[in-house]
């Protein structure tokens, strides 16, 4: 009971702060919109590689990737708010409370994942404008996939943030870890014709599985897949378990 109360309040704080942060909400819609409408539309018109009506295919390919991007970045950055909390001293307030480290990690994880699903779902509203065909059923299937992907990335982010002491460390992590992972995840461009090393990188990249799974449930198109759907789900759940345990371990191991 006490632990649930703790998980709930840590979750609530993140969600409340998100809803209160207008610039963040606007940014979270504006950035994917920019990617889709400018980059996506632009690339679609010059890409003719996708068969007869290549233009349409490209947005069809990219759209799930952008939803995945939103989920990935949102959940990753939410986890990184731990570094802010440490910097501003608030983390100590949480750490001396009698709540277990398990609940701290889970509360943080649920908070980030909730925000990520909200943001990812906002992108769904662009579909009619972009004339990307999605069905109601695929949206229903997408939500749980978004959620576990967000959980996986959050737990990874939390484990990393538990060790990071400064904002500089976070920036370095974003530039040298998150961005390359994102580019090699298959979110922006198809990896089918990419060089072997790139496909290899994509296959060991934790982000790829979320992108892959989301694209599959939205398009139902097997030819775009790096892995079978069930492999995606198993790996994602595996990442959640492994990274949550790592995060809890790292939080327990105090100075």
């Amino acid at each position: 009971m006490r632990e649930l109360s703790g998980i709930y309040i840590i979750w609530l704080r993140d969600v409340k702060k998100f809803l209160r942060d207008r610039p963040r909400i606007i940014g979270s819609v504006a950035q994917p919109a920019l990617f889709l409408f400018v980059l996506g539309t632009g690339l679609a018109s010059s890409f003719q590689v996708f068969g007869s009506n290549g233009g349409k295919d490209f947005l069809y390919f990219m759209y799930p990737g952008i939803i995945a991007m939103t989920v990935l970045f949102t959940s990753f950055f939410s986890a990184m708010s731990i570094i802010w909390d440490r910097e501003f001293g608030f983390l100590k307030e949480v750490l001396i409370s009698p709540i277990s480290r398990v609940s701290i990690v889970l509360g943080k994880n649920f908070g980030g994942s909730t925000i990520a699903i909200v943001q990812g779902s906002i992108i769904l509203l662009f579909a009619p404008v972009l004339k990307v065909p999605i069905t109601f059923l695929s949206v229903i299937k997408l939500l749980p996939v978004m959620f576990i992907t967000a959980m996986a990335i959050s737990s990874l982010g939390i484990a990393l943030a538990s060790r990071l002491k400064t904002m500089q460390g976070f920036q370095a992590l974003t530039n040298f870890f998150l961005m390359p992972m994102f580019f090699l995840s298959g979110a922006l461009f198809p990896l089918n014709n990419a060089p072997q090393w790139m496909i290899f990188m994509a296959r060991i990249n934790p982000l790829s599985f979320g992108v892959d799974a989301m694209r599959y449930v939205l398009t139902g198109d097997r030819t775009l897949q790096l892995f079978p759907f069930y492999v995606d789900i198993i790996v994602i759940v595996g990442i959640i378990i492994a990274m949550t345990l790592t995060g809890i371990f790292l939080f327990r191991k105090q100075e």
Partner: peptide
């Protein structure tokens, strides 16, 4: 060690629940 993006009451509520 306060969360300054929350109100005073919210800070206290957070603490109470923890």
């Amino acid at each position: 060690s306060l969360d300054d993006k929350l109100t005073a009451m919210e800070n206290l509520y957070f603490h109470s629940r923890l």
